[in-house]
């Protein structure tokens, strides 16, 4: 994909690295270059926004599972059992 405008970093390059950017897994220099591109390129920024939204949606859907209340007690009971055997 290319928006047709001249950029220091190519659009296709930016979009292939958008997840590295979101995951904060690129070095400072690269991060700066990608940020500059996103600041001046609307199509890429739009795509970035969609990815960011998807990331938030998926994290929200998966973040609220709670361990059963009795799990710790069960673990403790089994360890006590093991220690008694030892």
């Amino acid at each position: 994909m290319n928006c047709g405008e001249p950029h220091d970093t190519d659009c296709s390059e930016v979009l292939s690295e958008v997840w590295l950017f979101l995951d904060q897994e690129c070095d400072t220099g690269r991060r700066k270059a990608l940020q500059t591109h996103l600041d001046e390129c609307h199509p890429c920024l739009e795509q970035f926004g969609l990815e960011e939204h998807l990331k938030a949606l998926l994290a929200r859907k998966c973040g609220g599972d709670y361990a059963p209340a009795d799990l710790k007690a069960r673990i403790r009971a089994t360890i006590v059992e093991i220690r008694t055997e030892d």
Partner: peptide, 17 residues
């Protein structure tokens, strides 16, 4: 045992998730 129980309390949630 109490020290280990604290580790279980601290991390059983994230590990279960």
């Amino acid at each position: 045992m109490r020290a280990y129980e604290q580790l279980v309390r601290r991390y059983q949630g994230p590990m279960y998730r």
